[in-house]
Design a protein around this nucleic acid. Sequence first.
DNA 1: ATCCAGTCTGAAACTTGTTCTAGATTAGCG
DNA 2: CGCTAATCTAGAACAAGTTTCAGACTGGAT
Lengths: 203, 203
Amino acid sequence: MTAEAKPASPPLTERQEARRRRILHASAQLAGRGGFEAVQMREVAEEAGVALGTLYRYFPSKIHLLVATMQDQLQHMHTTLHKRPPAGQDPAQRVADTLMRAFRALQREPHLADAMVRALTFADRSVSPEVDTVSRITTAIILDAMGLEHPTPEQLSAVRVIEHTWHSALITWLSGRASIAQVKIDIDTVCRLIDVTSPTDTH
Amino acid sequence: MTAEAKPASPPLTERQEARRRRILHASAQLAGRGGFEAVQMREVAEEAGVALGTLYRYFPSKIHLLVATMQDQLQHMHTTLHKRPPAGQDPAQRVADTLMRAFRALQREPHLADAMVRALTFADRSVSPEVDTVSRITTAIILDAMGLEHPTPEQLSAVRVIEHTWHSALITWLSGRASIAQVKIDIDTVCRLIDVTSPTDTH
DNA sequence: ATCCAGTCTGAAACTTGTTCTAGATTAGCG
DNA sequence: CGCTAATCTAGAACAAGTTTCAGACTGGAT
């Protein structure tokens, strides 16, 4: 049901897959300490035991690398969430719960979150496919929480707005311009759109 | 009513004010062509007829410079909007109108928009005060469109969510991952929150 | 008018992302 | 096994943001 598709363009050998993994691990590790700026390409390469040129062959830019790192982490979170689905009564509440849970997970690694989110919103067109993948995973997580199989276009719009709010609120919190309490309030607020756009609503 | 406050810390002399203006102008001009990456500090300095060190004295980083550029442009837009307030019946519609009008203005200068918005969301803590100023202006614009003097906390949350959506949708459009039509739909969707959180609503 | 402190200039230096090159290694194939 | 193309490595080189510094200039106080 969830897209697990890696772009299997050239099927990587085992050693290559291992290299890729080491690079992503090094990236997450360095990001976990100092955030975006601590992820320095030379250091990532060294930590991963790989030449700089090779790093660039696997990830054509620092932004690509960090967006891929985010993909990776999101995938983890998605499977984790599958194991313990949110328990609220109505969809809006379940989505808000899920997002706040994700939020608390990120709170534990604020530097990592910083690096990933900054990369995500800074990405230009050359990274669109990868950013799109991240967006698809996020959408899947939200739709899962809503328990929807066949969302209406209206609901998809609401989901997009929730995603927008999620990213932007995250940034606002990470740069110290909003408290966690405020983020929670805003998440709750935006989740009201789920009720407003539910098909039983008189539109 | 609207915050016009410049941080008058050291009152700039006339020549200094002129330099500042030249710098901002050069920044906007270069951004108007190639976007974020076309705003190169050495070029800005040269175009503004100022030494590189001076540029850095006025704006301590490229991000600061671009956020200040955004401040400047937003201020323009705010006064422009004051001259022709949106004409819709209900607040939600007026806000959506206003935002879409702003959107079309940015469409005319997509590169400039790209540079400003990318800088805004990429800004780290060291730029928080400046980013906050931008946020305050944006809030003022939205509240103006709503015609509210004394918003409730709920309404302020809705406004923040609208801002989040606005920024994030803008980015999505700028990086080619969403059409203008989709942006319009999402803006309309998020503006429903204005009705939902209106005080006459049974909460 | 003179002097002082702060400001501006021009240029070099430093940092980190990115590109390039020449040679070693590896993977797949006959 | 031996060949060939692709991949990997080490390291230099380049680009743009940022810092630094010595000297020239400006504006205001005495």
